[in-house]
């Protein structure tokens, strides 16, 4: 049986992890490779690396990091942040990334999704969508949720699927950082109306939130950062809890 995935997300700047990470057993708290290896060993199903650098050498630094991660870890990982061309994706996949995630570049140039899916296959193209609930309507936002677009979440998600995305990573800006749970209603609607996997992001605070996102939110995977980085939730414990609730997980 296909299991629900638990995905820690690592924010990367200039090849280093950024968010304060509270791992006592880490020799170098800023080393993404070491952190990735710890997550892989603790039962994470997949990892996401989100690059937030803004330097000239960004592409090269990220490509080098991907190579180092692929050398060390034996679970799949996705790379996102600033990817805007077929060439960007080519080098990341060649270096060992399993999937890439695109966000703003897909909104600005929707045909990019078609070009990437045609060249590399839908299975490695994740489209990330950040959206905010405004006056009862889910509006897609760019630049980490700062800039509103005119796109409706559900319409955009359907277009993304039609253009060849293999998966959607949906972050609710209303829930992100609140630790009050995921946007289960919107997630369930996405999962029902679309026929590609949906990764839920934004709002994880406790184990119950993960149970809810898989049952009520019908999500295929759940992504979180701080609850894992600060060891508020151990992935092993989380998976035991999910299993006890009858949710299929890899243990």
């Amino acid at each position: 049986m296909l299991t629900k995935r638990i995905i820690p997300c690592l924010d990367i700047k200039n090849g280093r992890t950024v968010k304060g990470i509270n791992f006592v057993d880490l020799r170098d708290a800023g080393d993404p490779v070491e952190l990735a290896a710890i997550y892989a060993a603790s039962g994470a199903d997949e990892l996401v690396f989100l690059d937030i650098s803004a330097t000239e050498e960004r592409r090269k630094t990220l490509a080098n990091l991907v190579l180092k991660v692929a050398e060390k870890i034996n679970i799949p990982f996705t790379v996102g942040g600033g990817i805007s061309s077929v060439e960007d994706v080519d080098i990341l996949l060649q270096n060992g990334a399993d999937k890439v995630s695109i966000n703003s570049s897909a909104v600005k140039d929707p045909d990019l999704i078609n070009r990437l899916a045609a060249k590399f296959g839908s299975q490695c193209i994740t489209v990330a969508i950040d959206a905010k609930l405004i006056d009862g309507e889910w509006i897609v936002h760019l630049v980490g949720g700062k800039v509103p677009t005119e796109l409706n979440l559900f319409e955009w998600a359907k277009e993304v699927e039609k253009r060849g995305a293999g998966e959607i990573l949906f972050t609710s800006m209303n829930n992100d950082g609140t630790k009050n749970g995921f946007a289960n209603e919107a997630l369930a609607r996405l999962s029902t109306e679309l026929n590609i996997p949906i990764i839920a992001s934004g709002g994880a605070g406790n184990m119950q939130h993960f149970c809810d996102v898989f049952i009520e939110g019908k999500a295929d995977a759940a992504l979180a950062a701080s609850v894992f980085h600060f060891k508020e939730i151990e992935i092993k414990d989380l998976k035991e809890e999910l299993k006890n609730k009858g949710i299929p997980v890899r243990i």
Binding site: T3, K4, S122, I196, D220
Partner: peptide, 30 residues
């Protein structure tokens, strides 16, 4: 949902390729 992305189980294992692999082991598929 298509594609299938994630960890699924393998069974009916019948080859030396699966030596020391238990029934219902998880593998990653896309």
């Amino acid at each position: 949902k298509v594609p299938q992305i994630g960890w699924n189980q393998i069974s009916d294992l019948s080859s030396p390729l699966f030596k020391n692999i238990k029934e219902l082991e998880y593998v990653y598929l896309v």
